[in-house]
Design a protein around this nucleic acid. Structure first.
Length: 126
DNA sequence: GCCCTGACTGCTA
DNA sequence: TTAGCAGCCAGGG
């Protein structure tokens, strides 16, 4: 199996985030053994096409402060927050959520290795 | 190869 | 508490 590029790895991990949970860019970067690449994680999600974003729960990735920081011509932070609220994630009046209540524990290094070795992106399936 | 960009983060004032 | 700023890293031209 050819080595996946960083974007694909980000997307595969994002797909593992359960409904009603959120995580932050740096956490995903850390799972990919690149703790400083948090900004690249954001770029990977920005690179999703509308078609691809239907399969990837991109809205479950927010910044470490617990707030939506999407910058996309199609979607606004309000849209992202609304999507998460529809899944049961609660935000306070200032638009912050609480990682202690809604944060995702993430994957162990073994789970990440397994995932990257075997998982397929939805649009890769025959 | 080199340079630029960006849905971030942590530090400083 | 908030704003500004530099560091970081992968992809694209």
């Amino acid at each position: 199996m050819p080595e996946r590029n960083f974007f694909e790895k980000v997307w595969l991990i994002t797909m593992q985030i359960p409904r009603g949970r959120v995580t932050w860019y740096g956490a995903i970067a850390e799972m990919l053994d690149a703790p400083r690449a948090n900004r690249t994680v954001g770029w990977a999600l920005n690179a999703l096409t509308p078609e691809q974003s239907q399969h990837i729960p991109w809205q479950r990735v927010i910044n470490k402060a617990g707030r939506c920081s999407i910058r996309n011509s199609e979607q606004t932070p309000d849209d992202q927050q609304a999507l998460l609220e529809a899944e049961g994630v609660e935000f306070d009046a200032r638009g912050y959520t609480d990682f202690k209540r809604f944060g995702w524990d993430g994957l162990t290094p073994d789970e990440v290795r397994e995932l990257l070795a075997w998982a397929r992106l939805p649009w890769e399936r025959g």
